[in-house]
Each structure stands twice: as C-alpha cells, then as structure tokens.
Amino acid sequence: MSFQNLLIENKGRIRYIIINRESKLNALNGGTLAELHLALTAAFADAGVGGVVITGAGKKAFVAGADISGFTALDVQGGTELSRQGHTSVFDLIAHASKPVIAAVNGFALGGGLELAMACHIRIASENAKMGLPEVTLGLIPGYGGTQRLPQLVGRGKALEMIMTADMLTAAEALQCGLVTHVTDIDSLLPNAEELMEKILSRSPKAIAAAIEAVNAAGTAGGYEKEIELFGQCFGTGDMKEGVAAFLEKRNAEFKGE
C-alpha cells in the first residue's frame, strides 16, 4: 500500500506511521486523514504488528494543526460532518485500538495535531515540542476530541485555560501537567519511543488490549464493571496461563497473544 502523505516503516513488530508533509508542517488535510485511516486499519489488522508509533517528518512539527484553507467552504452541516468523520475514521479508531499507539511529538502539535497525539495511548515529546489548541482564535472549538480528552489528561481547569487562551505549552510544561509522560532531546525521541514500545510488547497482548479497553471506560458509569468483566475474561486466555506459570517457575513469560 503506497501513500502520498504518509511514510510507513517497520522495525520488528513496531510500525511507524510518519506524516510526511514537512513543507506544510505536516498539517492534516482530508487526504492525510483518509490515508491515516487506511494505514491504521491495516496496522491493527496485521498480526505481525504489535504496536504503532505515530510521528511527523522532520524536526519542526508533529502536526501543526489542520489545513484551514478548506474551512471557508463549510457551513454548519459541513462542519458537523467534518468533525464526525474525523472522530470515527481516525481519532476514535486510535483511542479504541487493541494495540498500543505512541505519539512521538517532534516539534509543534497544534489543534488537530495535538488532538491526534491525545488520541494515542501514550505521548512522549522532544524538548523543542510546543503543544496547544488555538481553535478559539479562528472562532472555533477543538473538534477532534480535544474538549473531551484534554480534561482527562490535565484536569478541567487547565484544559479550559489552554482552550480559552489558545496558549501553547512547552514540552517541560506538558510533562509537568501530565499531557506527556517523557521529554527527551530530538535525536533520542524515536529511540526512546521504540524502547518504551518494546517494553510494552514484551507483555501479554491480550492483557494490553484489555487494559486499554478498561482505562478507556474510566470515569464512565460502567467503568468498574468493565474492569471486573475484563479481569475475569483474562482468566480464559492462554497468556494468563503462561504468565502465571512463568511467574511460578521463575522464568520469563513467552506470550503468544492467545
């Protein structure tokens, strides 16, 4: 599968999806979102892929927002459909994936770019990263999950401050408020993302998928019940039997995702 706006690279069980519009600071447009849907769907369906790392080409930007030029032709219905389609085809697809997805934020992650990073399960950033949601400067609000995911990560007050002021956070500030979990120099960003992903991939794939689903249910009315349900289901997996046997036999587990 070939793409115009993405580069796809494999390293072992890790699939890199690189947004490759460096001259446009990797801004999201309709074509890029469509390609992301195809690339992500293929990665999640590929048994040889254990996890995905998303990043942007170059050192200046992860994704510096959406392609604003296309907004002028949209009315209320068009804007609603733009948001709904993005949620369904890309952002929620990532958030609810059964395989781990890490955002390696290299430079600017603004608007839809930050929303893309927030849809990922884990975010790490380079020291030069700048993150923000500037939509109110355009007379808009975040439309790809930003108003929902940002409060979960940084708290309601900080989220409202970021959204209403449109101010950017530095990488250090993002780390302090919990928006990212690690900050590193730009040259170490992908190696660190890879190291983190390899550690995750050494664990049970069945348990990782269940953990993602359970954490996604956090804060909902059925969150605790979902955890109970998924915990119980783990007892029916080969991974659980292997993990317990390995622990009792004092050896490393060899999980098969069964």
Rank of each mutant, 00 (worst) to 15 (best):
Q4W: 11
T181M: 06
Y224G: 08
G238I: 09
I54C: 02
I14F: 07
A221V: 12
E258P: 02
G139Q: 12
N29V: 07
T165P: 13
N10S: 12
A159G: 01
P205R: 09
H182D: 06
R84S: 09
E9H: 13
A166M: 09
G111E: 02
C234V: 05
I8K: 11
H121I: 07
R156F: 02
A172D: 06
K250C: 08
Q152P: 04
T181I: 08
A221L: 10
A166D: 02
A166K: 11
A97G: 15
Q233W: 03
G30T: 06
S202P: 01
G178N: 01
A210P: 07
T41C: 11
F71A: 02
A159F: 00
H96A: 12
K256M: 09
E173R: 05
K130G: 02
F247T: 13
V180G: 00
E161N: 12
I54V: 14
K241S: 07
M118D: 00
V215E: 12
A209E: 15
E22V: 12
G58W: 06
T170Q: 05
I68G: 01
T55E: 08
A117D: 03
N10A: 10
G86T: 05
V63T: 08
A64H: 04
G132D: 05
L74A: 04
K199P: 01
G139L: 05
V49Q: 10
F3V: 13
M164Q: 15
A221C: 01
E227S: 09
A61I: 01
I68R: 13
E135G: 01
F108I: 07
N20E: 14
G58S: 08
N29H: 15
M131K: 03
D187C: 00
D92R: 13
L179R: 01
D75P: 06
V180C: 08
N252G: 04
G143V: 05
A27Q: 13
V101I: 12
R84W: 09
P191H: 04
N216Y: 04
T237K: 04
E115N: 04
L33F: 05
G238R: 09
H121Y: 08
Y144D: 01
F108R: 10
M131T: 00
H96Y: 15
G107I: 03
I124N: 02
A210S: 14
I124V: 10
N192C: 07
L230T: 10
K59V: 07
E227V: 13
N29P: 11
D92T: 11
A217P: 07
A253T: 02
G155E: 00
V183E: 03
L160W: 06
Q152G: 05
G78T: 01
G65T: 01
V63C: 14
G236T: 00
F44L: 15
L230Y: 08
Q4N: 15
A246I: 11
H37F: 14
R15H: 03
Q233Y: 05
R251K: 14
L7C: 14
S188T: 09
D67S: 07
M197V: 06
E227T: 11
L140S: 06
M197R: 04
V53M: 08
K59M: 08
G223F: 06
I163W: 13
G78H: 12
G58M: 05
P100Y: 00
P100D: 02
E9T: 10
L138N: 12
T55F: 03
E225W: 03
I122Q: 10
F108C: 06
